[in-house]
Structures are given as C-alpha cells and as structure tokens.
Design a protein around this nucleic acid. Structure first.
Lengths: 151, 151
DNA sequence: TATTGTTATACTCTATAACTATA
DNA sequence: TATAGTTATAGAGTATAACAATA
C-alpha cells in the first residue's frame, strides 16, 4: 500500500466542491420556494412514507428540533400532510401531497439538468460514469467505514 | 441532453460524504495538534509563500478575521513565521518553519494513508483513478463554472 | 484617503435542555 | 416512567463593523 501519486486530500477537494454545488443549487431552490432542508424533506418523503418526525430528521442528518419550522411551512403551503397516528396519537404520520410531489419533481429536474450540463461539459463520458458510480459507492458507505478505522 | 439514468443529486451525495471525510480527519488532526483551519493554513503555505494574511485567508476560503487566532497559535508553537514586510510594514510575510513543514507532512501522510485504504478497499483500480481525476477536474473549476449558468 | 492587521460585535446555524401531550 | 413533538435557551461558527498602524 505504498504512496500513490501526489494529490490533494480527498476532503480538501470534496468539501469545497460540495459547498459550491450547494451554492449553485440555492437560486434554483429559492425559485421553487424551498430551503435546502425543505428540499431534503421532500426528497426523503418521496422515497417512502416516514413514521415519525424524529425518524425523518435523523434520516436526513438533521436535528428533530430543526425541521419543525420546515414541516410547519410545507404543511401550511399544502405540500405535506401531517396527521396524528390513530394507533399512537403522539406520532405524526408524514406524507407528500400531489402538489408536494410535483414541486419535488420540478425542483429536482431543474437541479439535475444543471448538474448534467456541468458533468457533460467537463468530463468525458466513461470518466463521468465511473465518477458517478464511485461517488454513489462512497456516499452509501456506512459511517463506520469512513469513520473508525484501526491503522 | 436527454435524461440520464435516475440518481441522487450530486450535492446530496457529495456534501454528506465531505462531512464524513472531515469527521474522519478530525482525530488525526487532533493527534497532530491541529485544527482544520490550522491544517488548511499549513497546506496552503507549503505550496508557496503568501504575501499577506488576507490573501491567505481568501485562498483557503476563510475570513481574514477568522485565521488570526490560528496564526497566533501556529506562530507561538514555532510552526509558522510571521514577519513585517520591510517594503510595506503593514503586511506580514508568512512562511512555514522546518517544524511546520514536518508537522504538515506527517499529518498529510496519515490522512492520505487512511484515504488510500478507503479507496482501495471500495473502488476497483480503474474506477478509482477515474474518480480521482474527475474529482480533481471538478474541484479546480473556477466558481463561475459551477455557480452561474445560463440554461 | 486607503489598506493591513486586529479587536469587538452581531448574526446564523446547530445542538441541548425544558415543557406538553400522550402512552 | 417513558416517548413524540414542541418551545426556549445556549453554544459554535461565521461574518460585519469599528479601530490602530502604516502607506
């Protein structure tokens, strides 16, 4: 496992790139009336319904106290439904309305269209495919694989 | 430019991955007595000497007011030299001491060794190479390429 | 007057602790 | 008593404004 060729640290490339991508998304999100967290909520809820707010928060890497205003707003605007669970009335069952799903789709389409432009403009097709595959692999690793490691 | 295959948003993969990588670096940095910003300073100064603190801050994406304590600490520990520019005594000329360079090297070696383990463990060699190349390409794009874009 | 470095202040984001309602 | 959701509070991290030294 000798030295590979000289390169910047992974985090030193990835973190600023992430910041730049996020900054580039913001105007699109704003145009659709969404904050970053609101968009994260819509994305997550579209995958499958979530049983509780705490579970939703955890699954998008947020604090449960932080998404409450987000949920209030989305609910008030008719993008999200929040009903008490009849089985356990402490729990709120969350789901997207058709309008919420439309907003999600329109927003994601705009964002990914822009991303695809970026990728096709700067990466040759095979490299692009490898990049996306590798990125997906790394992004879905359990935190333990990245975090703790006995050297 | 039709739809590519379904995938998560780039930022949705990259940002959390960056956070995880950074979290994984923290214990290593701590072991070498560095904060993240201190490490960023050492990396930047090792490339080439910087003429002013403001320029340094800007070039690592920090605010000039935020790196002052970092510079104070590095200087007090003998990792960094800060001298008034004889030509313009408002300016502080910054450079690493040999000890600063040693700390930088030891820290980066530890960090990249860990990263290389991670990459070799999860990505086949050709994909790994493509990933690093693509990442480097995207990370070195001017902000305008990522930020503003006429659709 | 303009600029470098510095200090003091304010703001934003995030996490912790305290409360309520159900169980 | 324990938990889901909520509210109120406190803590990081960051940026803005004001200052002193030099040009």
């Amino acid at each position: 496992m000798a030295a590979e060729q000289r390169r910047p640290d992974l985090a030193a490339m990835i973190v600023p790139l992430g910041r730049a991508l996020m900054a580039a998304e913001l105007p699109i999100l704003r145009a659709h009336g969404l904050t970053m967290w609101a968009y994260a909520v819509l994305l997550r809820l579209d995958e499958d319904p979530v049983r509780s707010q705490a579970a939703l928060a955890e699954s998008i890497g947020a604090d449960k106290t932080r998404i409450i205003d987000v949920l209030n707003d989305l609910e008030a605007r008719g993008l999200l439904l929040r009903r008490p669970d009849p089985a356990d009335r402490r729990v709120r069952l969350l789901s997207l309305t058709p309008e919420g799903r439309r907003t999600r789709d329109a927003t994601q389409t705009a964002i990914q269209s822009r991303e695809n432009h970026l990728l096709t403009r700067h990466l040759p097709a095979p490299q692009r495919a490898a990049f996306l595959t590798a990125l997906h692999t790394l992004a879905t690793l359990p935190p333990s694989e990245l975090g703790s490691q006995e050297e």
